[in-house]
């Protein structure tokens, strides 16, 4: 049997992307509604930062421009999560509840991949683009451009953060094989994610621990922003990468175990 290469996966993702794009283009009004929604959210975040920085020069060592870099990262990765990860996961939970997951399991393609990219909320792309624009603007305002090494570290931690969040959310969604009413868990994740607009080191210990290890917001937002603002130690970088690999592995094993359990239970 021919093994799938990375290129095959990317081609599949591209196809899903194109199909959703065609579907969404039929409802252009949604584009504008999402644009307004994203701008409102971005505006709120920026207004709040501007109020905070009229009273202080630095927030726990983060200067205004650095905080904007953090918020840019927040929107960038939040857009990616809400575009690709959460829609597919909430669909997965729905499929388990309605018993329609079987169709997907019979497709001649890796089920975990199909489950992960089966639904795209395309206009969240706007969040991602706004985030990127803010990142660039904040970096140029910051004065010194990040070094190539910092950019590399940023890219790596961003990827690692996305993988950790993906693994975490897939893990939660996979629980639906046993507990039907987990759709609420995703809502909890979404509301906890909002705490990521600020660097996690301003929170008291218990909240910081929650946002780091229970709901991995810290890895998704704070760590990449630290990488870009020269705060990240080599140790933390390596630790983050190792954690991402571990999270992916654990979730992968859990998913396979769950599918075996599911097939056994439903037959």
């Amino acid at each position: 049997m021919k093994r799938n290469t990375m290129r095959d996966y990317l081609r599949l993702l591209g196809t899903f992307f194109r199909v959703s794009l065609l579907g969404e283009l039929a409802y252009r009004a949604n584009f504008w509604l999402q644009a307004i929604e994203s701008l409102i959210e971005l505006g709120t975040a920026l207004a709040l930062v501007s109020v905070v920085f009229t009273y202080t020069q630095s927030l726990n060592g983060w200067h205004a421009s650095e905080l904007l870099i953090l918020i840019g990262t927040y929107f960038l990765i939040g857009g990616a999560i809400n575009m690709i990860i959460t829609p597919g996961m909430s669909r997965l939970i729905e499929q388990v509840r309605l018993g329609t997951l079987d169709y997907l399991l019979t497709k001649p393609e890796e089920a975990q991949l199909l489950v992960s990219i089966q639904r795209l909320d395309l206009w969240k792309l706007l969040d991602l683009l706004f985030g990127l624009a803010l990142l660039v603007a904040a970096a140029s305002w910051h004065g010194s451009w990040p070094s190539p090494l910092q950019i590399l570290a940023f890219a790596l931690t961003l990827l690692a953060g996305a993988i950790i969040v993906y693994s975490f959310v897939l893990f939660l969604a996979t629980l639906s094989f046993w507990y039907v009413r987990v759709e609420n868990i995703l809502v909890i994740f979404e509301s906890m994610y909002e705490a990521g607009r600020w660097p996690v080191d301003i929170y008291p210990g218990w909240l910081r621990a929650t946002l780091t290890f229970i709901v991995p917001v810290a890895f998704a937002v704070t760590v990449p922003a630290e990488a870009l603002t020269a705060r990240l130690t080599w140790l933390a970088l390596l630790g983050t990468l190792a954690l991402a690999a571990l999270a992916l592995l654990v979730t992968r094993l859990f998913w396979r175990f769950a599918v075996r359990h599911y097939s056994g239970a439903s037959s």
Binding site: V52, I202, Y203, L207
Partner: peptide, 15 residues
């Protein structure tokens, strides 16, 4: 409230 208190307490400590 937890986020707001954290942010503003940090500012207060700094200032």
């Amino acid at each position: 409230p937890a986020v707001s208190v954290s942010v503003w307490s940090t500012v207060a400590r700094n200032e």
